[in-house]
Nucleic acid binder design. Structure first.
Length: 308
DNA sequence: TATCCAAGGTAAGTT
DNA sequence: AACTTACCTTGGATA
């Protein structure tokens, strides 16, 4: 086992791990105490992730040698401490976007009440950078589901099809590789509670496993072209595509237009409702300051979902 | 106890 | 291209 730490003072804008990992951006991390989404964090719990990535996903995550690997960390008084099966420093910085300058991103936001309230309430919330395949399947599962249940579904897939990885005596399960998921049947996935998403997950996994396409291949395309590319996967429409762009591929301007954001549009920015996804998305992106509009979206989403 | 409803939507069929 | 409808499952609200 290797260990290390990262001083919190080196993270501009701080790091709120609870807000970052329990706000519905990533479903690939879990809390050691199993109390994900069950209220405020109790002390400083450990969070862990196991990684067993295919070639394209592995190329996006800076790990020192081949998969699989497990990483866990917690945020102590003045540092982030980690333990892993390898030197995980660079992978943590990558996955949790610890190199983002939050102060600069917040300063870049439009001066509006709702946005200011969200940024003030959850300062330290960072976007995540999930491996593309796991992120894509997570959000295929997210259709018409509550955040807690999406997490359950992804955990179930990992338990049933994922590679076990042992770290210091504890065994974790990585999100399954495309091959392993492609080999599952629709019936099996339905039995695991995926409902009508079962064939979407299987067919998308098959597209990736056979090399027909890969979510990581969208990286580098112009934003709206990248979104269009991702919709070729079964179960991926414009909203899920925006989630993958924002939470995996670093398109910080992407604003997933979900039910919460549509409520925001009708309650706060009715003039941004242009009747269709693309145009409404463009209008809201403009209103959210453009370049980091997705950062604004994530804070506002979390604020609306957690207040009251 | 039985029904209804909405949950971070998408695909397929119809105008 | 815009509009409808069906779709699995589950927990919480309503009757």
């Amino acid at each position: 086992m290797e260990t290390g730490s990262i001083p919190l003072s080196s993270l501009p804008g701080g790091f709120d791990v609870h807000a970052t990992l329990e706000s519905g951006q990533s479903y690939l991390w879990r809390r050691e105490d199993g109390r994900m989404y069950e209220g405020d964090e109790d002390g400083s719990p450990w969070y862990y992730i196991a990684l067993d990535l295919d070639e394209q996903d592995a190329a996006t995550v800076p790990l020192p040698d081949g998969d699989p690997h497990a990483i866990r960390f917690r945020v102590a008084a003045d540092s982030l401490e980690w333990e892993a099966t390898c030197d995980a420093h660079d992978a943590l910085v990558h996955l949790l976007r610890l190199d983002d300058d939050l102060d600069a991103i917040v300063a870049d936001a439009p001066d509006e009440a709702l946005i200011g309230e969200a940024y003030d309430a959850y300062r330290g919330l960072r976007l995540v950078r999930d491996p593309p395949f796991g992120c894509t399947v997570s959000f295929i599962c997210s259709a018409q589901m509550r955040v807690e249940r999406i997490h359950e579904m992804v955990s179930t897939l990992a338990r049933e099809y994922g590679e076990p990885v042992t770290l210091d005596g504890r065994t974790y399960h990585a999100f399954p590789t495309p091959d392993r998921l492609a080999a599952a049947t629709e019936a099996e996935l339905r039995d695991l509670g995926l409902g009508y998403r079962a064939p979407y997950v299987q067919r998308t996994a098959e597209m990736v496993a056979t090399g027909e396409a890969h979510p990581a291949s969208a990286a580098g395309l112009a934003y709206e072209d990248a979104r269009e590319y991702l919709t070729r996967f079964v179960g991926v429409g414009e909203k899920v595509a925006d989630c993958v762009l924002l939470f995996s591929l670093g398109y910080d301007e992407a604003i997933p237009l979900d039910t919460w954001m549509r409520t925001v549009v009708s309650d706060y920015y009715p003039d941004c409702d242009r009747g269709n996804y693309t145009e409404t998305s463009r209008a809201l992106r403009e209103r959210f300051g453009g370049r980091y509009a997705g950062y604004v979206q994530t804070y506002v989403f979390h604020l609306l979902r957690t207040r009251e």
